[in-house]
């Protein structure tokens, strides 16, 4: 991941858990399956920290397909991806509201890591 490809701010870092595939978000400390816990980087320095966290997690074989996603902040300050693809990725299938994060489901096995 290079600065040249960095999306517009603010951004969050998401990935898929290597073992369970679940979409996970970097909280600044751990990977969480809850989008509302994502750490929001509002400046270039914060985005660079997220990139460093992505590189480290990939190297440690905890996650795959880690990348920054540009977000808007809703009325309560929560990050919502601007692009429809990433919005579906953080919610679940739009045609099955009973499945995925939007339905409170997670594939993460709690003892995973």
């Amino acid at each position: 991941m290079t600065a040249a490809k960095r999306p517009p701010l603010p951004v969050i870092l998401l990935a898929n858990d290597l073992l369970d595939g679940e979409v996970v978000f970097w909280t600044g400390r751990v990977w969480s399956d809850r989008p509302q816990e994502a750490l929001i980087a509002r400046d270039e320095a914060g985005a660079a920290l997220l990139e460093a966290a992505a590189a480290e997690a990939l190297a440690q074989n905890k996650v795959v397909d880690a990348y920054l996603v540009d977000v808007a902040l809703d009325g309560e300050g929560r990050a919502v991806p601007r692009h429809y693809r990433e919005k579906i990725k953080t919610e679940g299938p739009s045609v099955r509201r009973d499945l995925g994060k939007q339905a409170g489901q997670s594939n993460l096995v709690p003892t995973g890591h």
Partner: peptide
């Protein structure tokens, strides 16, 4: 992939 396992949007 040779064993049919993809990584998709929400999961494998």
């Amino acid at each position: 992939l040779k064993n049919g396992v993809y990584l998709q949007l929400h999961a494998y």
